[in-house]
Simulated assay, not measured.
Amino acid sequence: MDVLSDVVATLRTGEPRSARVAWRAPWGQRFPSAPGAGFQVVLEGSCWLLPDVGEPVRLAAGDVLFLPRGHGHVLADHPSSPIAGPVCDPHADGGWEGGTDDGPADAVTLCGAYQLDPARAHPLLRDLPDVLHLPGRHPEIGAAVGLLAGELQRPRPGSAATVPALLDMLLLFILRTWSEQPAGGPEGGWAAALADPALSRALQAVHAEPGRSWTVESLAARAGLSRAAFARRFTATVGRPPLAYVTWWRMATAARLLRDSDLPLSTLATRVGYTSEFAFSHAFKRHHGLPPSRYRTAAG
């Protein structure tokens, strides 16, 4: 898989949870901090984001808010509306089907959270702002929002499987849209790394073959740079040395395979670049704090 697909597949645990909520003016609601990454999608109408610091931001139909660290926030029909306590809990029973008021709505939103394992959080998420606002004019995001709105407004056979899949698609489009924006000034970070053809080739190679015996020299050759130039550029942009990233990605991949497969430990060890089960178990325990067998039991 490519780097962004790998990131989404590896960092998420469980299904995304969400709830469709219809609002009638006047309204104002505080949404609590959520484990993982929170999101808001304006399906119909408009509303305002009221940040704790800074000016209110008007949101229109199709707009998406992504909160990679799950910070609490406030939405309202108007900046002067009184604010009530939390109403949307995507982790409660009922999930995305709950939360609709009676009568015509002035706005309809989809609130929710992606369940993420902090131990496997990709450094890409750390580069994102606390609140990322993506207007609905982005074609891919608009298409995903439109499909979500249709499934939520008129659930049909298969909607229980379609909605989580569309939410995964939305997450990928959010990360892709952000990564393809101009770097906006930072000289480092994942937007810059993915936009850099040399570093992108090296990252793609690591993600395609995490079990290969990578060295700084072999990665530099993939990037088309000298060893020293590659090591400097990679470390400055990504935030860690090349082989440190290789080890981190191997451990993240191993954790996903332990959780999602029944591969024997010897096979899994080879797949992520270790010549023996003992060496793999030692490295995994040092990184995750548990030996692989106990990690697999706890994840199950």
Rank of each mutant, 00 (worst) to 15 (best):
P118F: 12
G85F: 02
S226W: 01
L175S: 06
Q40P: 01
S213T: 15
F278H: 15
S159V: 09
S266N: 12
M251L: 09
L4I: 14
S226D: 14
H138L: 07
V216L: 07
V41E: 10
A191T: 11
P35V: 09
S80K: 14
L265C: 02
T177A: 12
Q40A: 14
E140Q: 14
M169Y: 12
H122M: 12
L171Y: 10
L67F: 12
S5Y: 08
G62R: 00
G85P: 02
L152K: 00
V42I: 15
D127N: 12
P157C: 02
R256V: 11
A119Y: 00
H287K: 12
A208V: 09
L11D: 13
R126G: 14
E217A: 14
Y295V: 00
G28H: 02
S261A: 14
M1H: 14
G158D: 01
P90G: 01
P56W: 04
G184A: 06
W178L: 01
Q204Y: 03
V42L: 10
L67P: 05
H73K: 08
P56C: 04
G98M: 06
I83K: 14
H71G: 13
P186I: 07
L132K: 05
G98C: 10
A254M: 04
F230N: 04
T162H: 10
G211R: 12
D2C: 05
L243I: 14
A37E: 02
W23V: 00
W96F: 09
A149L: 07
P182H: 02
V21K: 13
A193K: 03
G188E: 00
P264W: 12
R24I: 00
L167D: 08
A61G: 08
V163Y: 05
G45S: 03
V272Y: 05
G185I: 13
R222N: 13
A269D: 02
A84C: 11
G62S: 03
E209F: 13
E180N: 02
L59F: 11
A195S: 13
P35L: 07
L175E: 08
A183S: 10
G158N: 08
G136W: 06
W23I: 01
P123M: 10
T275H: 12
P90K: 13
L125C: 12
A37V: 05
P51G: 09
A160K: 08
V108C: 01
D127A: 03
I83D: 13
A220H: 09
A92F: 06
L148M: 09
G224I: 05
L258S: 01
G136D: 02
A191E: 02
L59Q: 11
